[in-house]
């Protein structure tokens, strides 16, 4: 038996909206420590992983580990039936073939319950080694969103370089070129509005903007985003979900043959 009650139900809706375009059919691994998902996109170029900790829920019960095969598009359709202030409860039996979702209004005077059909999904699990990052940047998630959106009007790919000067995003296309450089800041009113750069070595990597733009769909989940760059390795774009967990995206760099 699995049961999880999330007071801030809108977080679940935002999470599904943040990943559903990259991954359509995914396995959620449920254990008494929480809910985990890892899934590659259809082209096997990027990976999406999330963790929702059991202690982030108002109530969490999982008698034995379960794998729930979910069509995220269908789950998103169901979550559209929830109100933005609804409390969401998820339930599944150990050998069941449905996930029950219950939406309770704030005043608990309106209750919706929906059964989502589960599916059997074969999925590969990638082992991601602990990496020593060349550069780690933290910035407002709205800033990241704006950079990748703005550069998408210039080109399809972006060069990201981290140096002592800051972190520079460059795009080139038929209409011209654009560079956006962020410098470290410490003067913002709120800590999360600052740009922080920790650099061990200068690094330059090239990525497809289409994916980086897709990662920005997680912006409503967190006020900040961390971008980890490592020479010759996938970039990690990390959104921490306050008091609940995280969603992380990994994207393979484009490389010279």
């Amino acid at each position: 038996m699995f049961e999880a009650r999330l007071i801030q139900g809108s977080l679940l809706k935002k999470l599904v909206d943040a990943i559903k375009e990259l991954c359509t059919e995914v396995n959620w691994d449920i254990s008494n420590s929480g809910i985990n998902m890892q899934s590659m996109d259809g082209s096997h170029v990027c990976l999406v992983a999330f963790n929702l900790r059991a202690d982030g829920f108002d109530h969490f019960r999982c008698d034995r580990p379960l794998t729930l095969g979910i069509n995220l598009g269908n789950l998103a359709k169901i979550l559209k039936c929830s109100g933005s202030n609804d409390i969401i409860t998820m339930k599944a039996d150990d050998n069941g073939d449905t996930l029950t979702l219950m939406f309770e209004s704030e005043k608990q005077d309106r209750i919706t319950d929906v059964d989502l059909k589960l599916m059997s999904i074969e999925s590969e699990h990638l082992g991601i080694p602990d990496q020593d990052y060349s550069a780690e940047t933290s910035m407002p998630s709205s800033e990241y969103q704006r950079i990748v959106r703005d550069l998408s009007s210039i080109g399809d790919t972006v060069n990201i370089s981290a140096t002592k000067e800051g972190i520079k995003f460059s795009a080139m296309g038929d209409i011209g070129t654009a560079n956006i450089t962020l410098r470290q800041t410490s003067s913002a009113d709120k800590e999360e509005e600052n740009v922080k750069i920790e650099m061990k070595e200068p690094v330059l990597l090239t990525f497809a903007l289409r994916y980086l733009n897709n990662f920005a769909k997680a912006t409503p989940l967190s006020s900040t985003v961390q971008v980890f760059l490592t020479k010759d390795l996938p970039v990690q774009v990390n959104y921490n979900i306050q008091d609940l967990g995280y969603v992380k995206y990994y994207l393979a760099p484009k490389i010279e043959e």
Binding site: H44, L126, T157
Partner: peptide, 14 residues
């Protein structure tokens, strides 16, 4: 246009 290698080329299977 630079080629786009698949992710498993970077990460091993668990």
């Amino acid at each position: 246009v630079l080629p786009q290698p698949p992710l498993p080329a970077f990460f091993t299977g668990a």
